[in-house]
Nucleic acid binder design. Structure first.
Length: 817
RNA sequence: GCCGAUGUGGUGAAAUUGGCAAACACGCACGACUCAAAAUCGUGUACCGCAAGGUUUGUGGGUUCAAGUCCCACCAUCGGCACCA
């Protein structure tokens, strides 16, 4: 008993510290010496925040850690790196609040994160570590920018951007979705600014370049093993619409103007009864002198501009607009004059910013037409347009040349007609826009462009990279880029003519930094190139990428885009960077809601480690449920896995070496073999919860024996090792084995033993299970029938003859009466 | 509104992918050890019933010898998107 307490005492902290020091010294996880197939296991690298690792990080990182360890034990050369997504707004905002320079807060956060990771026993290869805010890293982020720039994929244009007054910065569409700044919650307004864009739209479809076929962002999705919802989210985000462009003539009776509109329903063109343009459309300027009610129109436009996203959302049911009196449009099919409205339900960034409205067959146009008493012409039969718009299929009516056709045929015929008469053509539109990458912020990678009075926009020569982020910057937001006022930063001469020039003030979106980091891991020290192509060929693609579902769209889409750019220009030969992707589900508070600071329901992994130890935390999080499901935290349940580990430790004191009679251990041997198989298979499929329950069953088996042969116990320790690396190492040591358990091979199991074991077969009468019989595997139907009819308990069911037997070998026998 | 996911005991969950529903844990109850408590160990624990037996995977229908699993309709919860013509 005394010994037992002693064991418990030295568990946890002491052994954890002891072994992690030893592991570090031994550089256990460097795989350079190992032969065998590569396995690239990638975690989404964290943003090193001041609050440290979250239990959600622990979940994903433990999962990849278990798999990496298992893969290494089964002979793979595992690449399992970690790094820091250390540029970005949070560090800068924190700096603004406290006055402490971001480089300092980031450095201490990284120190904290890495020590937490070490405490958790995560086996990263720290020689590969990258930090996006270090000049050695962002040099290559800038190089990447230049690669895109040189190939016409990075360009500058004036654009309406989402602007947050409080943060004094441009926000990506994704960061301003609600109409309020994602970071500070302030209202987002629209502002016209010169901005840098990456041409992501060019990579939506497949392309050919120098006889190479580059698969696009859409078709590439077919080749990868990702959660279907994530693929669908990407597809929807890209938002491909197939339709036609139609030429409308806009006129005031004298002067004509050609206006093309995009539609997915060219078949409904005869039902077009008005046209609507967005409030910023150039048509208004063009005809300003001809619009009779210009004052009213201007007022509407001004109001529309002021609308918050919130009000716009409310307006989904209540459409507004103003007719442009004095001008009209002509439907090119029937030359009918139709009214033109300015309406804010028409988006400026999509298509040409103008629509042909078909109230009978479009819900939005229907609402608008009802409100303003506009004509509604039914052109597709099948609905009741006195009640609502009909968007389904049917035969065309009131449509001259396409009357009687089905929707699909009508579309084809109309497109042909448009083309023949030069009034339109087939067209495709995407919801995805080019990627706005400039930020008027300090804590990011500077955009490597120089402006010269004489030579204009000049890219920084590659030899001058990195363009170092200056330290002498007042990073308090002023409405302009903080870099604008750094003297040292702008002390530069034009690389072309040598005259004094100025640098670009903007920095890059942090998503640019995180779009290529998985390449850098493969050659993190290289100062000549972002990553040697040979290294890339050898190690890419990533075999498993684990990270939160919150990155389903942005990060993953941008990373795929950049990978495709690198492939196109010959720097890599992978098209899809992440072969398999899995998300860890969100860990919720005990009551099933999101963990929140204000409610005080956030669980700090440090506390759990302090109380129960790292192995317990790892095991608990993996035992909670399926990796991908959202799961509520339950402090009580931690005890279950804690007891399980204590039990193993207790058993270890009963391990002995002497000769033994294996016949006494038949059941244990069988369970051990079963477990080696099942745990291995479950890890491979990321089903850690069931792997652990099998380990528990096995341990319960062990605990029934007074004395336990070392041979068996050490196999248990081996299959436990990926889950609970500290305790496994400690017990491996205690039973007298050489350091380290983490350098051993995964044990093998006896397939013959498993397949020759008796199985239990369900016996059903009329489809209901009435009993179970134990039989040898692979018995025939006749033999099983004989056994069943001889079975005492089942005999009573066989008073009459049965009509039919359903026999599924090794599974079930069903007698139908 | 649209898209997606989920729904199984008091709780977290499992179910070889159409073949014994509730494995493994938590909790609870009772018992052992203890002066006592904690810890630990043992037994029980889906529901109804003393039992034989019957019922049960959000609801209603269907396919099948057999449905938690497949099909149809509906309901609830969670997550994402926001007028993309």
């Amino acid at each position: 008993m005394l010994e037992f307490y002693y064991l418990n005492f030295i568990m946890n902290k002491d052994i954890e510290k002891k072994w992690s020091l030893k592991w570090q010294k031994a550089k256990l996880y460097k795989n350079s010496a190992v032969k065998g197939e590569k396995f690239y296991c990638l975690d989404m690298f964290p943003y090193p925040s001041g609050s440290g690792l979250h239990v959600g990080h622990v979940e994903g990182y433990t999962a990849s850690d278990i798999l990496s360890r298992f893969k290494r034990m089964t002979g793979y050369q595992v690449i399992h790196p970690m790094g820091w997504d250390s540029f970005g707004l949070p560090a800068e905002n924190y700096a603004i609040k406290t006055g402490v320079h971001p480089s300092k807060t980031v450095a201490s956060a990284i120190a904290n994160f890495s020590s937490q990771m070490e405490n958790l026993g995560l086996e990263y290869d720290w020689d590969r570590e990258v930090k996006t805010s270090s000049p050695e890293y962002y040099k290559w982020t800038q190089w990447l920018f230049l690669l895109l720039y040189k190939n016409g994929l990075a360009y500058k244009k004036k654009a309406k951007v989402n602007w947050c007054e409080k943060c004094s910065t441009v926000l990506a569409n994704e960061q301003a979705e609600t109409g309020f700044c994602e970071r500070c919650g302030d209202q987002v307004i629209q502002k016209d600014l010169e901005q840098w864009f990456f041409k992501i739209v060019d990579f939506i479809e497949d392309q050919e370049f120098q006889k190479k076929k580059i698969k696009g962002l859409l078709s590439g999705l077919d080749d990868i093993d990702w959660p279907q919802p994530t693929k669908t989210a990407q597809k929807n985000w890209i938002g491909k619409s197939i339709g036609a462009r139609v030429n409308f003539v806009v006129s005031d009776g004298q002067e004509n103007y050609n206006l093309e509109v995009f539609t997915t329903r060219p078949d409904t063109l005869y039902g077009c009864t008005y046209m609507a343009i967005n409030p910023e459309h150039e048509l208004i300027q063009k005809f300003s002198s001809k619009i009779k009610n210009l004052a009213e129109v201007s007022k509407y436009i001004a109001e529309a501009k002021k609308k918050t996203e919130m009000e716009k959302m409310m307006a989904i049911k209540e459409k507004t607009g103003v007719e442009l009196e004095g001008i009209f449009a002509i439907n090119p099919l029937n030359n009918k004059e139709i009214k033109i409205f300015v309406a804010d339900y028409v988006l400026s960034g999509y298509g040409s910013g103008a629509i042909m409205a078909v109230p009978a067959h479009d819900e939005r146009d229907y609402l608008f037409a009802k409100k303003y008493n506009l004509e509604i012409i039914e052109v597709i039969s099948g609905g009741d347009i006195s009640q609502e718009a009909y968007t389904g299929d049917g035969r065309l009516i009131n449509s001259d040349i396409i009357n009687g056709l089905e929707v699909k045929e009508a579309q084809e015929k109309i497109i042909k007609y448009l083309l023949n008469n030069k009034i339109g053509q087939a067209d495709i539109n995407y919801r995805l826009r080019d990627w706005l990458i400039s930020r008027q912020r300090y804590w990011g990678a500077p955009i490597p462009i120089i402006y010269c009075d004489k030579c204009g926009e000049v890219p920084v020569p590659e030899k001058d990279l990195p363009v170092v982020l200056p330290e002498d910057v007042n990073f308090l937001p002023t409405g302009e880029s903080p870099l604008k006022h750094s003297k040292s930063f702008h002390k530069v001469n034009c690389p072309v003519c040598g005259k004094p020039a100025r640098r670009e003030n903007d920095t890059m979106d942090t998503f640019v930094c995180s779009s290529w980091y998985y390449f850098r891991y493969l050659d993190s020290q290289n100062s000549q190139i972002f990553a040697e192509k040979a290294n890339i060929s050898q190690s890419m693609p990533v075999d498993l990428y684990i990270g939160g579902a919150d990155h389903s769209v942005m990060h993953l889409l941008y990373a795929r885009f950049i990978a495709k750019v690198l492939e196109k220009y010959g720097y890599s030969d992978v098209n899809e960077p992440f072969q398999k992707l899995r998300h860890q589900g969100m860990i919720l508070a005990e009551d099933g809601s999101k963990m929140s600071k204000s409610k005080g329901s956030v669980v700090n992994p440090n506390d759990v480690i302090a109380e129960y130890g790292a192995d317990t935390l790892r095991l608990y999080e993996m035992f909670m449920g399926p990796l991908e499901d959202p799961k509520p935290w339950n402090t009580k349940n931690i005890l279950g896995v804690k007891r399980f580990l204590d039990k193993i430790e207790e058993i270890s004191s009963r391990v002995f070496l002497e000769k033994f009679d294996s016949n006494k251990y038949q059941d244990l041997i069988l369970e051990l073999n079963k477990s080696i198989k099942k745990v291995g298979e479950d890890i491979e499929e990321l089903k850690f919860n069931t792997a652990i329950s099998q380990l528990m069953i096995l341990v319960n088996n062990f605990s029934q024996f007074e004395v336990i042969p070392k041979e068996y116990f050490q196999k248990l320790i081996l299959i436990l090792a990926p889950f609970a690396p500290f305790i496994a190492e400690e017990l491996w040591d205690r039973i007298g084995n050489q350091f380290s358990v983490h350098q051993q091979n995964w044990p093998t199991y006896d397939e013959n033993l498993l397949s020759s074991t008796q199985i239990s077969l369900a016996v059903q009468i009329n489809g209901k299970t009435k009993g179970v019989i134990k039989i040898a595997p692979d018995l025939s139907e006749e033999e099983v029938c004989r056994i069943v009819s001889g079975d005492e308990k089942l005999q009573k069911y066989f008073l009459n003859d049965y009509k039919k037997v359903v026999w599924v070998k090794n599974k079930i026998i069903n007698f139908i009466f």
